[in-house]
Design a protein around this nucleic acid. Structure first.
Length: 308
DNA sequence: TAGGCCATCTGGTCCT
DNA sequence: AGGACCAGATGGCCTA
């Protein structure tokens, strides 16, 4: 699984706001402005780190007319607003490419960043593993450190049973449901000698409808606010990030293509036509896998599982 | 009502 | 000098 300790206590620099908290103290990386770290901080009587100002403590006396000073401050405020709007726009665009996007239920800023980090991590792990991802592990990685509401939202986006992804007090995602290990992709996925070179038959674990999949998830469009306006993100494991509703890259040509697509209600229609991502006729299955341009028979297997 | 989230203002610091 | 960046403070809004 993860090749590096994932749950770095300060990986996302949990906010430690409060008066007197040293700016950049615990979150500062090792090489980041190391030269200034000592001179920037001093300890008070209680050992608390206090920010030691670098510059002159008092504002220099200025001959600047009050009106001009005021005007410059207002201009600075406008620039700061603009800067923050740009930051928010970037964050919004990030929201749209992480695995859970809803116009009606936006992720908070911090949760967006955490989810993005988890997403990058999960994709990296999948790439380095070089085999088909374990859906449960993938989702667990995605949800690591997220709040329970966000975990529910992500699980809802992925149309999993959120109750099976409980976040414990350590921020660990705990799978509480039955862990079925029925191989989704058996050798029957490659009848005869059609198995492409380089594709191993490591069973892809799927989780039966008595497990992680919500038995009733088939109707996300039918009223659950979680699914309103939700667009699923691209999860494209070959490093080509196809944005939602963009034309997919041509996966028929060369390269080792390895993609997972989580399909959801509104995104599906846009993807159904001419997409690399196969969509079940019923539109009910949350993901599909493609290796080297091959489309696995996920729907068929899931159909069988469902109807059994 | 408390707590979380957010936008905005503000002053300090850094950089060009 | 002026703009960018940063973080603290503050108040509004929303929800449990």
């Amino acid at each position: 699984m993860l090749t590096l300790p994932f749950d770095d206590a300060h990986a996302m620099c949990e906010p430690r706001f409060g008066a007197g908290y040293p700016r950049g103290g615990p979150c500062r990386s090792a090489g980041d402005d190391a030269a200034s770290s000592d001179r920037d901080y001093e300890q008070d009587d209680g050992g608390l780190l206090l920010h030691k100002k670098r510059g002159p403590r008092k504002k220099k006396a200025t001959k600047e007319p009050h009106d001009r000073s005021r005007m410059r401050r207002q201009e600075a405020n406008a620039r700061e607003r603009s800067r923050m709007h740009g930051l928010n726009a970037a964050l919004e665009s990030l929201r749209k490419v992480v695995p859970c996007y809803s116009k009606t239920q936006k992720l908070s800023k911090i949760e967006t960043l955490r989810l993005a980090k988890n997403y990058i991590w999960a994709l990296s792990e999948t790439l380095s593993a070089g085999k088909r991802p374990d859906l449960l592990a993938f989702v667990q990685t995605l949800c690591k450190g997220l709040s329970q509401p966000t975990t529910n939202l992500v699980a809802g986006c992925l149309q999993l049973n959120a109750r099976n992804f409980l976040t414990d007090h350590n921020g660990e995602v705990v799978f509480s449901g039955r862990p079925p290990y029925d191989p989704l992709y058996s050798s029957s996925a490659y009848p005869g000698s059609e198995r492409p070179a380089g594709v191993s038959l490591v069973p892809f674990r799927h989780y039966g409808y008595s497990g992680a999949y919500e038995p009733s998830y088939a109707s996300p469009e039918a009223g659950s606010p979680h699914f309103e306006s939700q667009l699923s993100p691209p999860v494209n494991l070959n490093g080509i990030f196809a944005f939602k509703q963009d034309e997919p890259p041509d996966y028929g040509r060369g390269g080792h293509h390895y993609g997972v697509r989580y399909c959801s209600a509104t995104g599906r229609a846009a993807l159904a036509h001419g997409s690399m991502y196969r969509v079940a006729p019923e539109g009910r299955y949350p993901y599909d896998l493609h290796v080297r341009g091959q489309s696995f028979q996920a729907q068929g297997d899931l159909n069988a599982s469902y109807h059994n």
